[in-house]
Amino acid sequence: MGNDSINTYLVQMEGVSVKNAYVSVSKLSFSRGERLIYDDVSLTIPKGKITAIMGPSGTGKTTLLRLIAAQLDPDSGTILVDGQNLHKLSRTDLYKERKKMGMLFQSGALFSDMSVAENVAFPLEEHTKLNAVSIQQIVNDKLHSVGLRGASKLMPAELSGGMARRVALARAIALDPQLVMYDEPFTGQDPISKGVLVKLIKQLNDSANITSVIVSHDVDESLSIADHVCILAGGKVVAEGAAEEIRHSLDPQVKQFLNGEPDGPVPFHYPDESVSVPGLKGESA
């Protein structure tokens, strides 16, 4: 744990990747139209650990995942994934790199015209030359690992929200990726599904030595499994460090976020045009 925070420190000081970082973001700026979403952000996602990226809604946490996966290009700054700048790659190479990543979308994003088993088999059929029998074997294994082996014949429309997300998780890990990104995995889930997902994410990370990134605003669930935490607000990194450090942080913004206080450094009111809030360019809770 202590090691991580030192590495983080180095990244922030020098803007270069360190040995232990799987993803390193340095001096990232990104804006959508007039809105500045990221302003000179630097952070690190350590290899083989679970990193939670937290922040109030609307801070563009999902955007960060899309930037890491190179679905969006930054205005300035660099993002290195496993030492490679995906934004500089050709389309073919980028698609090759993406095979090393899995992403669990907020809505699950299962392909609605395929059954559960076909959904999980899809990345395998597309990217491997395995025969049907071995694909079936892998699909069964992956569905088994999320506890939904019996649901393989169902269509996505027949699944509950929690089940859909677990199927999507099975699909995301079908190619045994090195990096799995979770976009709001806990939102809209009942306490039991939340618990199941938390357990699954932890299990996957430990058993397969995956680097996990969780983007979430569910403080308790995220902190319970995260090794490394990064809190974003107003387009900037408010705090970054080991989970323990963050939990005991004295920073007023961090405390406000973790304890869910309605008003504090992050204002309750959306900033008015006439009353501009310094440092928070149109971006708040």
Partner: peptide, 17 residues
């Protein structure tokens, strides 16, 4: 609807155009 439910992004993330 595929775009709204992130299915298009999902293809892209799996390295499928």
């Amino acid at each position: 609807l595929m775009k709204t439910t992130e299915q298009l992004s999902s293809y892209e993330m799996m390295g499928v155009d």
